[in-house]
Structures are given as C-alpha cells and as structure tokens.
Amino acid sequence: MAVLPTATERITLPDLAYRPLRDTADRLEVVTVSRPNELAGPVRAFLRAGAPTA
C-alpha cells in the first residue's frame, strides 16, 4: 500500500489498482523516516521540507 497523489492514477500498469482513502482527512498522519546520520543533501532537504513548523 502507498499513499499517492490523485494524478498518479494516470499511470496504468497491469495488476495495479488505485483506491481512494475515505474519511481520513481529519486523521491522516504523515511520517518520514531516514537513517540517523543521513548525509545526502537531497534527503536532508526533503526531511526539512516535511518538518513540523509549529
């Protein structure tokens, strides 16, 4: 299972099915995971972009 943007539905592959999530807007939690000492700049930038702002 993966959470994907709606636009991904345009990609058609055999044995691949897209299903919408229902009633999850108030409960959806997004989590990122990386290695403790990640050095790759793009990975660090991605993690910073998703960091909590509050």
Rank of each mutant, 00 (worst) to 15 (best):
F46G: 06
T53R: 15
T53S: 08
R10F: 02
L39I: 05
R19Q: 14
T24I: 14
A51N: 01
L47Q: 12
A51K: 01
A25D: 06
Y18C: 04
R22N: 11
D26L: 11
L13I: 02
E29R: 15
A49E: 00
N37E: 10
F46I: 00
A40V: 06
V31Q: 06
R10A: 14
N37W: 02
I11L: 13
D15H: 10
T8D: 05
A49P: 00
A25M: 05
L13P: 03
R27T: 07
L39D: 10
P5S: 10
P20W: 03
D23K: 14
R44D: 06
L16M: 09
E29A: 13
A54D: 08
L4V: 15
R44G: 05
P14H: 03
T24K: 06
V3T: 08
D15T: 08
D23Q: 15
V30P: 02
R19H: 10
R22Y: 06
S34K: 07
S34T: 13
A25L: 12
R22H: 14
A40H: 12
V3F: 13
E9M: 10
Y18I: 04
E9V: 11
L39G: 11
F46H: 05
N37Y: 04
V3E: 05
P5M: 09
R48T: 03
T24Y: 14
T12C: 01
A17Q: 10
E9C: 05
D15Q: 04
A2N: 08
A45W: 02
V43N: 09
V33R: 04
A51M: 00
P42M: 02
G41T: 13
Y18W: 01
A17M: 02
E38D: 13
R27E: 08
S34A: 15
G50Y: 00
D26F: 01
T53W: 04
R10S: 12
P14T: 07
R35K: 11
R27Q: 12
L13F: 05
